[in-house]
């Protein structure tokens, strides 16, 4: 009586194939999730295009994000600011009409955050902007994006790398960024 390795394997064949297929499925699922449903590029309530505003119409960043060089938060423009132009510009556009609906109802637009740091992090736009950093260094080429996509990880190593490279004063002390 000979023992065939092949036969022995044969009893495990089916479960092995099933688990391999399951694993491949898992990987495909995960990849689909992070690419298609990526939180780096969420679908926004209004299909706002930075490309249209910045590249085509040459509006500087600070025109709308007025606080970026003044306060820790860059500030997202108030609905009134949008309406300041869009009362007359492109009023027929379906996306602008969405905006007009928010304005009429006096409701804020529920933008989904693309760039967010945890609550235990102290981050200030002001210091970075005043230090001469271009917005694109962290936010990527927003001026070419129709939908904003996060290009940086915003994770601590990413912050520290830059702080080290630029020799930021106390840039590696925990209490510079952790509150």
């Amino acid at each position: 009586m000979s023992i065939s390795v092949r036969d022995a394997l044969g009893t495990f064949k089916k479960p092995a194939v099933i688990s391999i297929i399951g694993l491949i499925g898992f990987i495909i699922g995960y990849v689909i999730d992070v690419t298609v449903f990526s939180d780096a590029s969420p679908v926004q309530p209004i299909n706002f295009s930075h490309r249209m505003h910045v590249s085509k119409n040459s509006i500087p960043c600070l025109h709308c994000h007025v606080y970026a060089d003044k306060t820790p938060s860059a500030g997202v423009p108030g609905v009134s600011k949008c309406m300041g132009c869009h009362k007359v510009i492109a009023t027929e556009h379906p996306e602008i009409q969405k905006l007009a609906t928010y304005w009429e109802k006096r409701e804020p637009i529920p933008w989904i955050k693309v760039h967010d740091v945890p609550d235990f992090v102290y981050f200030t736009h002001k210091r970075h902007v005043l230090a001469g950093l271009a917005c694109q260094e962290c936010h990527g080429p927003v001026e070419n994006m129709d939908r904003v996509t996060r290009v940086s990880s915003l994770k601590m190593p990413w912050c520290v790398d830059c702080h080290t490279k630029k020799q930021v004063e106390n840039g590696r002390d925990c209490w510079t960024c952790h509150k």
Partner: peptide
Amino acid sequence: GAGAGLLYGKSTKKTVELLLPQVIP
């Protein structure tokens, strides 16, 4: 497997946070 992969991918992400502007600042 694919379903689990999707769920796992979702669990690694943060919950959606909104960025609500003032209507009139």
